[in-house]
Design a protein around this nucleic acid. Structure first.
Lengths: 378, 378
DNA sequence: CTGAAAGCGCTTACAG
DNA sequence: CTGAAAGCGCTTACAG
């Protein structure tokens, strides 16, 4: 595997001119240190350090890895040589010899805008921050059909790209998840089967209870629900609590009060359209996420319903910039950043064998803003 | 580097119970194939394949790498053994021996919501899709101050994590970029110095011209500008075209017509506040990105200005869901997905030595929606 | 066209 | 407490 890579045999690589050429140009920017070392820095290996320090490579290795078996004296001495030579261990060699790659993968669903998604983004922030602190790198992948078909998700482990994987935005419908059950993997913000896979998710039941409580206390009784992905256990949690709470309040639950909004803005708008036409007495809408809530509000406002005076709307997620919406959205705050942190933390524990089962649920809370009010009197 | 990792020496890893335990639980999901191989699949190496196929490991290696020196016969025979044994080459060993890691890194700026950003997200989608097609993995990093201080960006290459890096959202103020100029690196959607670093960016001059053209044709003469990051060359392009086009139209450019909106929603609102108070005759606002445009519109509408009747607003980026804003936003479409594709493509060429300089500019176009109209008559 | 051997740069028992 | 040696799983000249 020289310059020749699969299906790219034609053009002989022109190695004659490389970065060196570009770097020879005049530069008027602040250099950070290094006396402008132009040539591709010749790599220094553990052997070079060993020779320079007058010890064996085994000793250098143990110093790098803070092995306590090395005496304080040699440690200091070798470390000084390491620093002065600017030695950085080759992690390919480290990982090939040792058990770990120190790399994790995040797998995203094959949605067109998965990378620009506020929900995934917030979780990713948490994962990235914690991974950095734990000395791990993050590989990011999108599980398109072709990707799964080719078994790329399995290759992640088998070809030693990563030690573990975090799966975002998947549910029981995604069978490929069970291919990974024998490896360190954590399903983020959902469950799978009954504890078949490790998971960390937000407490959607608690969130739904908080939302319903709020609406019922405001006097609402005709409450519609815009749900999505009923095959998802956490989404089902919300749906169940919704019906249970209505029943507990002595309200007859109607099938016609519920519509699927597909987790999208447009879906939310369409669902609001459907619901308000099916039952003109609806005074509130509980939505499975903020995007659908925003879409619903947009539809309602554009069609002459006042929010919240005519219809109250509650969302789920508490994604950024919601406070700027008009009206600002009352919603269930999901601790997504913390979820990412927890998932990453647990995955690393799992990899290190410190834990053999991960099943964690994070509490939510309601954020009361302008899209809800006391029920309208007629 | 066993189970002992830096600063984590305390707890002896409990290796006794691992994935096997969990997998032994009852499972009621669709298995994909494999006769439920519960034990951690013992890895099969190139040696196993060689023995089974009755050839040398060199031959197996060459078959895997499609080396044409292998005869058709042995190729087919060995390939069959590879398939039947389910052999997957260990990429750590491959990379250690060969010149490439087949991994690229994307470095994002240290913004709180960098991962949930529509602008970055769209570029990332393009990068991810193309990287996948080119057989490369993607590492994702955020360049926090600490990260740079510790030289992690240099480690990316020196410790052989990646072959190349794509930098998103940076400009000349970010000195660390010059640390990377001796390695394959592409600055995405900006320039640095005068061609010091490889880059691919959108044609902001063209975009600015299209936007100004539109506003001038609609009869606007008192046009304000909400810019951001004047230290960024591409942002400066817009500012320059803005003033040039005004002058060409015989309009005196006023310093008071310009305000910094920091690329944020809130910044855009604040800038709109400032500008409309400094000059009540402003009939149009050109904004450096969509977020600021949306913030400006929000401010204007909330303070009694009708958009577009009183003030027209034009944005930059054309991020998703803009068509749903009210009024929907007229904006300069930046080919961000294509930008990501191009950047990734060029970087890989650069790594393979097929090209020694990357400097590419992608065309834009204006998307006319509802936030602009003919100038108000007074 | 194929194989034996050296080497990539580390870690890890095993001696001492 | 430290070193010599084997080994991780590949690729790549070098022979033949």
């Amino acid at each position: 595997m020289t310059a020749k890579l699969k299906g790219e045999t034609r053009e002989p690589p022109d190695i004659t001119r490389t970065a060196v050429t570009a770097a020879a140009e005049p530069i008027q920017v602040n250099f950070n240190s290094l006396p402008a070392e132009e040539n591709p820095p010749e790599r220094i290996s553990i052997r070079d350090v060993a020779k320079q320090a007058g010890v064996s490579i085994a000793t250098v290795s143990m110093v790098v890895n803070q092995n306590p078996r090395i005496s304080r004296g040699t440690h200091v001495r070798v470390q000084r040589v390491i620093d002065s030579m600017g030695y950085r261990p080759n992690r390919l060699a480290q990982s090939l010899s040792s058990r770990y790659t120190q790399v994790l993968a995040v797998i995203l669903p094959p949605l067109r805008h998965a990378f620009a998604d506020a929900y995934f983004g917030e979780i990713l922030s948490g994962i990235s921050d914690r991974a950095g602190k734990l000395g791990h790198k993050l590989l990011i992948e999108q599980a398109k059909p072709q990707y799964i078909k080719e078994g790329k998700h399995i290759e992640l482990y088998e070809r030693r790209f990563v030690d573990g994987v975090l799966c975002l935005g998947f549910n029981e419908k995604h069978g490929f998840l069970s291919d990974l059950r024998q490896y360190p993997m954590i399903l983020v913000d959902n469950r799978f089967g009954e504890g078949v896979l490790d998971y960390v998710h937000c407490d959607y039941r608690m969130g739904a209870k908080q939302a319903m409580n709020c609406l019922l206390q405001l006097g609402h009784r005709n409450i519609g629900m815009i749900y999505a992905a009923p095959e998802s256990p956490t989404a089902r949690d919300v749906l169940e609590v919704y019906t249970t709470e209505l029943r507990n309040a002595g309200i007859e639950v109607k099938e016609s009060w519920m519509a699927d909004g597909c987790f999208t803005d447009e879906g939310g708008a369409a669902a609001a359209d459907l619901l308000t036409h099916r039952d003109k007495d609806l005074t509130a809408l509980l939505c499975g996420n903020d995007k659908m809530a925003l879409g619903a509000i947009r539809y309602l406002v554009e069609h002459g319903h006042k929010v919240p005076q005519d219809i109250s709307v509650v969302g789920f997620d508490d994604i950024q910039h919601l406070a700027y919406a008009n009206p600002s959205l009352t919603t269930v705050h999901l601790p997504l950043y913390e979820l990412g942190v927890a998932a990453c933390e647990r995955l690393v524990s799992r990899i290190r064998g410190k834990v053999d089962r991960v099943a964690e649920v994070l509490p939510t809370h309601l954020v009361l803003r302008e899209s809800t009010s006391i029920v309208r009197t007629r």
